[in-house]
Nucleic acid binder design. Sequence first.
RNA 1: GGGCGGAUACCGAAGCAGUCAAACGGGGCAGACUGUAAAUCUGCUGGUUUUUAACCUUCGAAGGUGCAAAUCCUUCUCCGCCCA
Length: 429
Amino acid sequence: MFFKILKKSKKTKARWGKIYTARGVINTPCFMPIATRGAVKNLAPSELEGLGAEIILGNTYHLFLRPGEKLVKKAGGLHKFMNWNHPILTDSGGFQVFSLGQKKGETRSPLLNWGRAGLPRSSVKISERGVEFCSPIDGAKHFLTPEKSMQIQLDLGADMIMAFDECTPYPATREYAAESMRITFDWALRCKKYIDKSQIPSSKSQAPNPKLQILNSKLQKKLFKTPFTKGGMGDLTPKYFLFGIIQGSTFKDLREESAKQIVGLDMDGVAIGGVSVGEPQEKMLEALDWVAPFLPEAKPHYLMGVGYPEQIVEAVKRGIDMFDCVIPTRNARHGALFVWSFDFAQDKRRGKNIFKAKNFYNVIHITNKKFTRDFSSVDKTCGCELCRNFSRAYLRHLFITKENLGLRLATIHNLAFYMELMRKIRESI
RNA sequence: GGGCGGAUACCGAAGCAGUCAAACGGGGCAGACUGUAAAUCUGCUGGUUUUUAACCUUCGAAGGUGCAAAUCCUUCUCCGCCCA
């Protein structure tokens, strides 16, 4: 994996770059559509490609429970299983264990509970060793450890894998946040150790791929005057790329300490977690500001679970390169569509630089009555399948009548919007 | 012609004397959604207002009993089913 920064903003910490992997190039800042259970809901991989998605996110937790990582491995890995030939990043399952592993009939614990889903955490038992939780599918008990999470992700065959962390809820007490951060660091160490041990030995790295080797040396020459080899970043040999996750909640010193700890592990990328868990946006940006000075310039920075378009813009300004979020896909399914509020190509005053544009988008609820007779397209400036071919009135009709096509078209549109958003961001840097 | 059963808000359907403007579904309207237990969830859905409260009008129609009726009685209208 190479990460090459092509341009840096003079005014902000924003960077435009490219991540080169054995499975393809990722333009950054990038948005990763979420394919939790091995599919971006309602979309085929070919459609994702058509939208310009370069990397998607899969999930350890869900694929572990169903169909099981061993089955995916037997299928030839997640890429082959789901027929997606571009990079995949897998989340470690840390987030899920804390958001949903409760037993049936358990009551809420106001102290431990969090999130709008109101899911109690009391059945999740966190210890130094790992996490015990109950499957929401059949109630079976499972024990997830950093090592197990790593092995699952290796079995899935992801290109980038996330360290197993304790996603600190919001709000959290200082004590909780500190303990959570400590465990996250300890687990990150264990993850790194496990991955280092499991790393594909370069001498044995499958059958040498001549094409890859040529591309490899070309890339090295092109991108770096001196080959960049540290941490295996300097070649395209299949390898597991591990991201550590910074925690520390809303406490400045904890976030700084966590950043130092995680960065100190010298992993392939750095993620900021414990964010977008219900905290106000200012708190999230504040956390980014605290952490920014510690992020290694040469490595990709990934802000987990974020977010709304304006949050992504703000985060890019603070040096973030990678994003993932359920918002575009979930909102699409719920009939909430992202629409540009003006034409960037036409409106010279507002449209040039997305960093300067204010209120650059709106969200419309397509099921609203006012769209019943609206035969215009959802977004005139959008070139997606929905906007090219169908009207708001038709999409509304599909939603009202619960026709599956509506979900698909809406998902395509919202992802197209996010892809376009990232393109505009890159162009603005 | 005779007998039985039914008629409740946009639809379906509970309620069968007071705590009923009336449960529950569906439909409709609006909103929420941030490392996806999420094609989900929440609120509203007779009217008006000073909208965590008050008043008015509603349970096929018209009368009646009773302090009080969607609930009991009488007649009528319509709809099922059964017998001639």
